[in-house]
Design a protein around this nucleic acid. Structure first.
Length: 560
RNA sequence: UGGGGCGUAGCCAAGUGGUAAGGCAUCGGGUUUUGAUCCCGUGUACCGCAGGUUCGAAUCCUGCCGCCCCAGCCA
């Protein structure tokens, strides 16, 4: 199978490099900046980097790209490690930081000065910008560009010693201010930041910038294939320039692939951070967030995420993947793995007028219709029950085969009941149904061949437990909120609805981290943050596919 | 109007000169005590457009169009 399966273009390159003997072993790295939490887009990068080495017997580094102390925090470092591990990847002893190489990076920078390929500039930030030119006009050389090597060496040393204020000096590569590629117009290599760093403390007051630090870190670690996203494509000439000038022992190759965008979701750390900071969501791990920690709390299985990115593929085309594709992976995984349970989200009282007041029967229920080895459990059945409000309609359309006045329906794992009377309150709302049950139709007895079209779920009001259930929906109303002028304007006002539900008794024992299917409703799990023994709080992971809802929607649209 | 990318069905995606895989979605149908699952079946994709090379092109060449990225001492 895997021999027939086609490789994506990156795996093809790697395969060729191994086959040709260019490399004996593949080395990759996943290099997040610890300035936020990882999201669904990162899952793809993680799977790719760790995946190609797992497949070929190579090694992968988890390297924190921590070159900007102003934005990075240990909180993020910890979250990133937790998330990568949760996805199932193991970096073993290869946990590194760009900051581990600050010493070597400094030496490399000195080397660049020595070969006259870098200089200390004294231009202000503003002047640097004007000197850079525009997309269509060449930039011009800084007046400090021709300082002597000796002077540059001395100035750089003084930068390092903290003799200058932030922004007063910077080290720049000496390339070409007229290059059509902006990245080659004497990019900054080192800037002054009198800031303590989350990993190196106060050892440094000068910090290298991304292009320089990243390229050389790749080289230092012997990375063979440096996989990154498309926006770094025109950084590649600079990446290669560093390698040509400094001639490290190992020469990594940068290859770019496109980001994975999910419909109705945002994948920008800046915007995700704004959602958190502005209190629009509960935190980075809010179950509505497309962050790995949010998805974990929501109840998404790691295996489903992995499956999703695998199906999405690795290419260079910008993609915006439909929610449905993602939900399909979730349902496929959960449908197979999750035990079934009974729960009523919006309870409607049902009284079985011909059922003895004090009688309680135990009904045997399968834990998984497709997997008998998962066993059964007993559900208490009694005179007063809760059913779903949606499962009753006073004026039902033809194809509605749930409960309606004088209609019959099967109670899952129970009896067939008939609706005899509808009781309403003063406002006219249906508050109770008086029904009668058919004793010959008890589930599993086969005493009656009678069949009814519909089957609905229920719980016994005397035995069920109360719970709060969070029903989540997409956070945004636009397919691509990344494009919106202001993402705050396209927030879905009803992305969270909390209901008071009734659960079958066995659910009092469900432990955190377990996902079950509430029959006919969807997949649910205890919320890892707020659920407690005293008060059960569940999250809805994803609904079941619902062809009835689809029919209703179509009918609505036809009516206008 | 500088540079770098990308363009195969609604969304992903194979295909690397020999006459368009697959997945998701859609739409039919079957099974079903979850309107779930499962099982069958279902797509004229003018392979962005226009020329050209070739016996033959999604694949090669030329021109055009559309979309994305780049002017942080962010990554």
């Amino acid at each position: 199978m895997s021999e027939i399966e086609s490789r994506d273009f990156i795996r093809q390159i790697i395969h060729d490099d191994l086959a040709s003997g260019k490399h004996q072993q593949v080395v990759t790295r996943f290099p997040p900046e610890p300035n936020g939490y990882l999201h669904i887009g990162h899952v793809m990068a993680i799977c790719l980097n760790f995946g190609v080495t797992a497949e070929t017997g190579g090694r992968t580094y988890l390297r924190f790209d921590d070159t900007n102390p102003g934005k990075e925090k240990v909180e993020y470092v910890d979250a990133i490690e937790r998330d990568v591990r949760w996805l199932g990847f193991d970096w073993q002893d290869r946990l590194t930081h760009a900051s581990d190489y600050f010493g070597q990076l400094h030496k490399a920078a000195v080397r660049l000065i020595e070969i006259d390929k870098a200089y200390v500039d004294s231009l202000s930030a503003e002047d640097t910008r004007t000197y850079r030119g525009t997309l269509t006009e060449a930039g011009k050389n800084s007046p400090y560009r021709d300082r002597s090597v000796a002077e540059n060496l001395e100035l750089f040393e003084r930068m390092r010693n903290g003799e200058f204020a932030d922004g007063e000096m910077m080290l720049r590569a000496k390339i070409d201010m007229a290059s059509p590629n902006m990245n080659l117009r004497d990019p900054a290599l080192y800037r002054i930041r009198h800031l303590s760093h989350q990993h190196t403390g106060d050892s440094w007051c000068i910090y290298p910038l991304y292009d320089f630090a990243h390229t050389m870190s790749d080289a230092f670690e012997g990375v063979t294939h440096s996989l990154c996203t498309l926006e770094f494509e025109d950084h590649r000439p600079l990446y290669n320039w560093f390698l040509e000038q400094l001639k490290p022992e190992h020469l990594p190759r940068q290859i770019e692939f496109s980001r994975l965008n999910l419909a109705y979701a945002i994948t920008s750390k800046r915007k995700l951070n704004a959602l958190v900071e502005e209190g629009i969501v509960d935190g980075w791990d809010d179950p509505r967030m497309p962050t790995i920690s949010g998805m974990r709390r929501r109840g998404y299985p790691a295996a489903a995420l992995l499956d999703f990115v695998r199906r999405a593929g690795v290419t260079k085309k910008n993609k915006l993947i439909e929610m449905g594709a993602f939900e399909n992976c979730l349902r496929e995984n959960l449908g197979e793995e999750s035990p079934r349970r009974m729960a009523v989200l919006r309870p409607l009282k049902v009284v079985l007028s011909n059922y003895p007041d004090d009688k309680v029967e135990m009904m045997e229920a399968m834990n998984h219709p497709g997997r008998p080895e998962m066993g059964t459990r007993s559900l208490p059945f009694s005179r007063e029950l809760w059913i779903e409000q949606d499962d009753f309609m006073e004026e039902a359309p033809r194809k509605f085969f749930r409960l309606k006045p004088d209609g019959e329906v099967r109670l899952r794992f129970g009896y067939i009941i008939r609706c005899d009377e509808v009781i309403k309150n003063d406002a006219g709302d249906v508050v109770e149904l008086r029904c009668s049950y058919d004793p010959d139709t008890r589930s599993g007895t086969g005493r009656s061949e009678r069949k009814v079209k519909g089957t609905i779920h229920w719980v016994s009001s005397a035995h069920c437990i109360d719970a709060e259930v969070n029903l989540y929906d997409r956070l945004f109303t636009e397919v691509n909120p990344n494009k919106a002028e202001d993402f705050r304007a396209v927030l879905n006002a009803t992305s969270l609805e909390t209901v008071s539900a009734k659960l079958e008794p066995s659910l009092s024992e469900l432990s955190s981290g377990e996902v079950v299917q509430f029959e006919r409703l969807g997949y649910f799990c205890p919320d890892s943050e707020t659920d407690s023994a005293n008060k059960r709080i569940f999250n809805r992971v994803v609904t079941l596919r619902d062809s009835w809802a689809k029919l209703e929607k179509q009918a609505m649209q036809q009516q206008g």
